Simulated assay, not measured.
Amino acid sequence: MLTLGMAVLGPQQSTLEVCKSDFMLARDLDLIISMHVGGNFLTPHGFSELKNENLLNKNTNVVHANNIPNEMLDLLVDSSCTFSITPEEELQMGFGNPLTKRLMERGGTFNFGSDIESAMAADMHNVIRFALQAVRHEFTLENYERNHSPPSSMSVTTRQAFEWLTIGAAKSFGIDDKVGSITPGKKADLIMFKKNKINFIPMHDPISSIVFHSNSNDVDTVIINGVILKRDGQLISKDLDTKLETLAASGHRIMHQFREIQVEKKEG
């Protein structure tokens, strides 16, 4: 299933005129419109202006936005905007705490991703562990400030984290009627794990085992809309070797061009 969307500069990196034009096009085409937010804004009151024009809605997706003020966050949540959080990358890049806790407190809709696959693994197993432990850490610090002691129970459960990756992700993109859970009538999107792997034994709680102990090597089978794409731990593709060669060539080309740019800068 492929859903068309728009990636735009948004209020942080474009003028109000450009913002309105982009958002009106997305509205007219009924597309998800997504933008990165962080740092100084070229159009500081851009989101307020877009809200006044009724251009913010459930199809508006904001990425990162770690340090936006509460007033702006409240405006976006109240407008039914969704948020994409990339916890490992945000912590590495010094963006600040991921938005998870602030969004949970406001009932916001969010999903998780990796970002910058050239710098870190695009592995959702790691992503969800980073997300869960980061938000637990925030709640723990808050409890220490209030009660001078660690919390008596986990602030966020493992099942909540598991649902962030499944039905929660589907809801954030408005496709929970099609995917996100094993339900009659939904598309057959399934991931099956090898439960006899050493990191799963003994398995007392399958959800906890997947969230805390799994990695991509534990995935035995992947089915997308009824089509098997991975079986017995192996990707199924007639031209997989060709695709891998193309990917490697692309990486070499990018690095070659980068080195040429660096040489030109030195000579200039």
Rank of each mutant, 00 (worst) to 15 (best):
N196R: 08
L56A: 05
G5I: 12
L244N: 13
F23I: 08
L2S: 11
M154R: 06
T242Q: 09
N111H: 09
S48F: 00
F83I: 10
T109K: 09
E163D: 09
E17N: 06
S84D: 09
S84V: 15
C19P: 12
Q234K: 14
T86F: 01
C19Q: 10
M72S: 01
L240V: 15
P11D: 11
T100R: 07
L2H: 09
L9Y: 03
S21D: 14
K171F: 03
R253M: 15
Y144N: 04
I182V: 12
C81P: 01
H125P: 01
L244S: 11
T140P: 02
F95A: 09
V127Y: 00
H213P: 03
L56P: 04
D30E: 08
F110Y: 04
M93E: 13
N143D: 08
V222T: 11
P69G: 00
L29M: 10
Y144Q: 02
N143V: 14
A131T: 15
V156F: 01
K178M: 06
K51F: 02
L247D: 13
V62N: 03
D232R: 14
V227W: 03
P150G: 06
G233I: 15
L141R: 06
M24S: 11
N59T: 12
S250R: 15
R129F: 00
L25K: 10
R253W: 09
I207D: 01
R146L: 10
S208I: 05
G96Y: 08
S153G: 04
L103V: 13
G39A: 07
G268Y: 09
L4A: 11
G251K: 01
I201E: 00
K20L: 12
L165V: 14
H148F: 07
L91G: 04
K197M: 10
F139Q: 11
F139P: 09
I167L: 10
K238E: 14
N61F: 02
I261M: 12
F95L: 13
D232L: 15
N40D: 09
H137S: 07
S208G: 06
M120I: 14
E105I: 12
L50T: 03
F95R: 08
H204W: 03
H137E: 10
N70M: 12
F139R: 11
A26R: 05
A131S: 11
R27E: 08
F130R: 03
I236V: 11
V219Y: 00
G5Q: 14
L42Y: 01
N66V: 12
E49T: 07
I32N: 00
G38K: 10
M192V: 15
S84W: 04
N40M: 09
I228L: 10
S172D: 01
I116G: 01
H213D: 11
I128A: 00
L25H: 03
L235T: 06
G174K: 15
H256A: 12
M104T: 03
